[in-house]
């Protein structure tokens, strides 16, 4: 049987490899799944009998919990493995960890790893579905998908919008996934941050580079404000958090000068008063908590599609259960 064109294939490693149609079908599939989380009994039998391992080799709260909710609400059996308190601290390699999990007959692995390429590395070596929950500075596809869904919810389109990603682009997997996803869906993409935190040659990816936050705000319909990792100061990329806020912080005063209402996203966790001020984060243009809500639906959609689900049947699957 030939696979339908919107099929994701075995894994979700990044948005760079996906087509526009594949990305849209994930977003469309997420729509019917949103409603599950609003029910009194938040559980449907879509992934009943599937075993999913959440392999988080790097600290994560939001993403790990979001995946876990998505899995549990779809009735999958889940196991969580962290970097501490597991065989990883005993020096086991990623390949060996994966092979051992595989030997216990699992269906999917959701992996977070500090090394770029780790998710694809795993995907090539095990037959289970692999979902990238963030690999080094490479990609964080489900974060970008939930960002896309949130933008589409709020502004009813993505094509033709001007979206500027602000902050540490160099080290950000969220930025890369957003750039690939937004460009594929026809948005214009800008990046803004100190030159020390922009990769050399980033413009060759097809993005506009802003050196001043004021110019980015004047241009953009949407700002996706990235967390400034505090260790970037030790790395000498920025002289101080105070100075960063002063020149790159998204503040009320700066937003007030914008020619239009700019939608504000942030992948969290926020450093209030550094990359974003509290009155912006909590203000009317912020959709930061909607992103978190959408995260669960998007992850449900990804798990459902990788398990062999078809977008058109998502609604029915919620009632009848199963993807077979």
């Amino acid at each position: 049987m030939s696979r339908p064109t919107f099929s994701l294939g075995k894994d979700l490693v990044g948005l760079e490899e996906l087509s526009r149609e594949q990305i849209l079908s994930i977003l469309d599939t997420a729509e019917p799944f949103k409603e599950i989380s609003e029910r009194r009994i938040k559980k449907v039998p879509v992934l009943r009998g599937k075993t999913i391992v959440n392999l988080f080799m790097e600290p994560s709260t939001r993403t790990r919990i979001s995946f876990e909710f998505a899995e549990k609400r779809l009735s999958a059996d889940t196991v969580n493995i962290g970097a501490t308190g597991s065989s990883v601290v005993k020096g086991e390699t990623l390949v060996d960890t994966a092979r051992n999990l595989e030997a216990m007959r699992i269906d999917m692995v959701v992996i977070r790893h500090r090394s770029s390429g780790a998710a694809g590395f795993l995907a090539e070596r095990i037959p289970s579905n692999v979902v990238n929950a963030g690999d080094g500075s490479h990609e964080h596809p489900t974060q970008a998908l939930l960002d896309l869904l949130t933008i589409r919810d709020e502004l009813e389109r993505i094509e033709g919008l001007k979206v500027c990603i602000v902050g540490d682009i160099l080290h950000s997997r969220v930025a890369r996934s957003n750039i690939f996803g937004l460009l594929k869906l026809g948005a214009e993409v800008g990046v803004c941050g100190p030159m020390t935190l922009l990769p050399l040659g980033i413009d060759a990816l097809g993005v506009k580079v802003f050196r001043k936050i004021e110019e980015a705000i004047e241009w953009a319909d949407v700002l996706n404000v990235l967390r400034l990792q505090l260790e970037r100061m030790q790395g000498g990329f920025v002289p101080s958090l105070r100075e960063y806020n002063r020149f790159y912080g998204v503040t009320r005063r700066r937003l007030d000068k914008a020619p239009r209402d700019v939608l504000i996203l942030h992948p969290g966790p926020m450093n209030r008063g550094v990359e974003i001020d509290s009155d912006v984060a909590d203000g009317p243009q912020s959709v930061i908590l909607k992103q978190v809500t959408n995260g669960v639906a998007v992850r449900m959609a990804v798990l459902y599609l990788l398990a062999g689900g078809v977008p058109e049947h998502a609604e029915a699957a919620k009632k009848g259960g199963g993807v077979e």
Partner: peptide, 15 residues
């Protein structure tokens, strides 16, 4: 190498 490929792959580069 630090360049377009490293930017795409999210790997730290040597210029």
């Amino acid at each position: 190498n630090e360049g377009l490929v490293s930017a795409r792959l999210g790997l730290p580069g040597k210029p």
